[in-house]
Amino acid sequence: MIWVVVILAAGTMLVLALLTAFVLGWANEAFHVEVDPRIEQVNEVLPGANCGGCGYVGCNEYAVALVGGQVPPDKCTVGGVSCAAAVAQILGVELVQTWAYRPVVHCGATAAQRLGTSEYLGEPTCAAANIISGVQGCTYGCTGLGDCERSCTFDAIHIIDSLAVVDYDKCTGCGACARACPRNIISMVPFKSERMVAITCSNKDFGKDVKAVCKVGCIGCALCQRTSELFAVSDNISRIDYDKYDPQQMGDLLVAIDKCPMKRIVFVGKPSAEDLAAVAQEETPKIIEADFKTTVDETEWHG
């Protein structure tokens, strides 16, 4: 009896194995999907950081989209111009001039300039603070709890005096901070020169309401709009049209910067030679050591 089972079991497995091998082998032929060899080439040129700055999940997804011809080759912010050129060469497409995109924080109020703030003992993340009203008067501005700082893999954005400040020397423009900010006050701006003009306010309320919550917020007075055609005021907030921006012709732009009553039009990026010369004599403050206190150390358990 035992031999019956052994022979039948072996026979069953053998037939099953042969059948499956045949079917899978046939399916492998019949359902074969051609993979473009250029995808592999493009993949090698891309930096492989998988940061998601291009808007795709990883470098491989972007390579597939590139070979599919759906996207321009200049989306990779980490690789920059050289990477875009290499990709363009592989794909045989013309490369139009590209700009490096860098984040700009559209809030310029430090802790002392914000009004209506209250002591916040909740979770020390922007995402949590954004849910609760009354953390600070301005519901558009930076909460200074550092979601952007934690999202940055290049150590290029820091909370200084409750305000996110970008370190443009380290920044690669991957856009992780812009995605992390729950209030969407960080936007990616094409840096046509090393210094860029930016409006550091996001408050869309009327001037009177802005003044109630912030000492330095944009009141939407539209003086800049009347001075330079770069600016457009909508929703009580001034915006810069970066398509029209030309670093060579900044005549009326400088006038607008001067005229702005709240001084919300500022230069970001690398400081100019004059600026460096102006502060050369001044004493720089010492670097303060960070203290690693968390809210858990100070507050009662509130799970």
Binding site: V4, V5, L8, A9, T12, M13, L16
Partner: peptide, 11 residues
Amino acid sequence: IVDLSILNYIV
């Protein structure tokens, strides 16, 4: 009566 249920898992 042949019983092949020893093959259950592997199959």
